[in-house]
Design a protein around this nucleic acid. Structure first.
Length: 266
DNA sequence: AGTTAAACCTGGTTGC
DNA sequence: TGCAACCAGGTTTAAC
């Protein structure tokens, strides 16, 4: 998509936030080019630049629970828009569609990645999983500030960002840590192990192209390979891959957690 | 300042 | 078969 010239942005039903705050004038995007895209947590930043060098305004995208971004290169067969295509970015090189049945996703215009809605949304995120300055000590110290179960703390994204409900269960299983363990009770060794396992889990998931439970699709329309990733998630009652004991579940803060009562202590 | 519940939505599955 | 209840990948916001 990089270098593509924007022709139009069509919005369908409202997403999590409006493109711009109510009352603000919609930005003139026509003619701008898509720059180098980046990611922070689960937010995707798409800088849009004109011919003259200017502060990089752009669009911030989020897929929410059920969203998928799909890129249709120009000149190739394209499916007609469906009822859940709520944002369509037309460019000279192709079309980008945000398909999101539940509409928890978002596309927001921002005058810069450090300004406006971007600043508000991105500044409170925890460190990136592969942030060089994120080491065992830093991670452990953050965990020490929370008395909530480690599952909830991990999901909250303050100690490390980007670990969703699936990978939370997976990382805790790999680290052999019980999800109900109070965060401030983890030993330094456990914290180090957990951080390693978060990184390993995310790396293997990225390698497999993500997890498809229902309707997730990659940008090329292909589903991710869920089976190869999940050792515990979605496997309630099935034998643990390590010890054959049945996988159990726990409801934590309204979210389901999958774990092995034997391998992950008590 | 940390923790919790509610809110935003649609669609698929389960249970009566 | 029909319908209600419940559950699902996320994250902000207000309230405790």
């Amino acid at each position: 998509m990089e270098g593509a010239r924007v022709e139009a942005l069509h919005l369908g039903k409202p997403l999590r936030w409006p493109l711009v705050p109510v009352g603000d004038a919609p930005p003139a995007l026509y003619g701008l080019s898509i720059g180098a895209m980046s990611r922070r947590g689960k937010y995707i930043w798409m800088p849009l630049t004109g011919d003259v060098l200017q502060p990089a305004q752009g669009l911030l995208w989020h897929l929410g629970m059920s969203g998928a971004l799909r890129w249709w290169p120009a000149g190739r067969p394209i499916e007609p828009p469906g009822p859940h295509d709520h944002a369509i970015l037309q460019t000279g090189s192709g079309e980008l569609r945000l398909t999101d049945p539940r509409r928890f996703g978002a596309v927001v215009w921002s005058s810069g990645i450090d300004q406006g809605p971007c600043r508000q949304l991105l500044s409170r995120l925890g460190p990136e999983p592969w942030d060089a300055s994120l080491d065992t000590s830093t991670f452990w110290h953050t965990l020490k500030r929370h008395r909530t179960p480690i599952k909830q703390t991990l999901l909250a994204g303050k100690a490390v960002v980007g670990v969703g409900n699936i990978y939370c269960s997976e990382a805790l299983f790999r680290a052999r840590i019980h999800p109900a363990t109070r965060s401030d009770k983890l030993t330094r060794a456990q914290a180090g192990r957990l951080l390693d396992c978060v990184r390993d889990t995310l790396a293997s998931a990225l390698d497999a192209g993500g997890s498809t439970l229902r309707n997730y699709r990659g940008a090329d329309g292909e589903p991710g390979a869920f089976q190869q990733i999940a050792q515990v998630y979605g496997r309630e009652g099935l034998p643990c891959v390590a010890c054959s004991q049945p996988i159990r579940t726990l409801a934590q803060q309204g979210r389901r957690t999958y774990f092995c009562g034997h391998c992950q202590g008590r």
